[in-house]
């Protein structure tokens, strides 16, 4: 039935997702504020921001779970407001809840979602094998889903969400509450989907994960703050040389450095102190300032900027404005 529906612009666009001036107001609160972006087909697209930034609301509007207040969004060429049914069979959606039936077994969950998406018996068997293999659940087909650990549940939820092989997958905080190894495995799976031409839009607040994305949009308070590939973002927003140092008294060290007019973005990063310096300034300046104030440096080195540095920088600019 989906085949005779027509896409908004007729032809198949190069973009899997096109968003124009999309806004959502909840009462007087603006959750998403006139957002624009395009996602090319086959790309892993990261949607980054702190909690409450409007990530989930945006993704839920794209899935047809929330109606936009204004603006348009096309998913695989179909308007999310005018044609939600056409979108349903073309997308997969997985939320951080890993919404599975915990009182059903692994196999029963897969069969259920296969049946609901109208797959034939043979197709369900085929996909069942694929999902079990993909999620690493071989031999656990008859386990109750509720007894599985987070990583397995997460991969099974992904398998059920893409049982019908959609071309576009929305993942809302898919790695929340999952151990680091499972997180890593999960991103490998997303990479595999992308190689097969699947477009993935993923929200996260783990900035290290965003490095896996082809393109990123950073969002805060419902507005886009920055966008580009991870490399572009770092080049554009971090103009300092970054140094990391281990000192004997980090609390005092931070106070000392913050008092220096030339030290930018002084922060505590785990047990390390981080400081940004303009190109023309040398690391000697830092050593001198700390030693003068009786803070001993154990180790010091230059580091390449992370997306976290970009994010702090982007949000910092916003704070000044």
């Amino acid at each position: 039935m989906g085949d005779n529906r027509s896409r908004v612009n007729g032809a198949r666009s190069d973009y899997a997702i096109e968003v124009r001036g999309l806004s959502k107001l909840f009462g007087g609160f603006t959750a998403v504020d006139s957002v624009n972006f395009n996602v090319p087909r086959g790309e892993v697209f990261g949607f980054l921001g702190p909690n409450g930034a409007g990530k989930s609301t945006t993704i839920r509007m794209l899935c047809g779970l929330v109606e936009p207040t204004s603006g348009t969004a096309l998913v695989d060429g179909f308007d999310v407001v005018a044609d939600p049914e056409a979108i349903r069979t073309r997308i997969g959606y997985m939320s951080q809840k890993f919404s599975l039936y915990e009182d059903l077994t692994v196999e029963e969950n897969i069969r259920f979602f296969g049946g609901v998406y109208g797959l034939s018996g043979a197709r369900v068997r085929e996909r069942l094998k694929w999902v079990v293999g993909m999620a690493g659940l071989d031999g656990k087909e008859t386990r109750l889903t509720g007894t599985l650990s987070g990583g397995w549940r997460q991969r099974l939820a992904l398998g059920c969400a893409i049982i019908h092989e959609p071309g576009i997958v929305f993942l809302d905080e898919p790695t929340a509450g999952v151990d680091p190894v499972s997180r890593r495995n999960f991103w490998d799976l997303i990479g595999g989907l992308s190689e097969n031409g699947v477009t993935t839009m993923v929200t996260t607040h783990y900035l290290d994960e965003a490095e896996y994305c082809n393109n990123i949009v950073m969002i805060n308070d419902g507005r886009i703050m920055a966008e580009g590939s991870p490399k572009e973002l770092k080049e554009r927003h971090v103009s300092y040389d970054l140094y990391e140092l281990l000192v004997d008294d980090p609390a005092k060290g931070i106070d000392v450095l913050r008092a220096q007019p030339w030290a930018k973005e002084v922060s505590l990063f785990g047990t390390y102190l981080r400081v940004g310096l303009e190109d023309s300034l040398g690391a000697e300046l830092v050593k001198g300032a700390l030693e003068k104030n009786g803070v001993a440096i154990t180790r010091m080195g230059r580091v390449s900027p992370s997306l976290e540095d970009v994010f702090i920088r982007v949000l910092g600019e916003e704070g000044v404005r």
């Binding site: 899935c63 047809g64 779970l65 049914e85 349903r88 069979t89 997308i91 959606y93 939320s95 809840k97 919404s99 599975l100 039936y101 915990e102 979602f113 609901v116 998406y117 109208g118 059920c160 969400a161």
Partner: peptide, 13 residues
């Protein structure tokens, strides 16, 4: 509560 209703909502059902 478990979010499975949302999954059903997104299905062709």
């Amino acid at each position: 509560e478990h979010g499975t209703m949302e999954q059903l909502t997104l299905s062709p059902l």
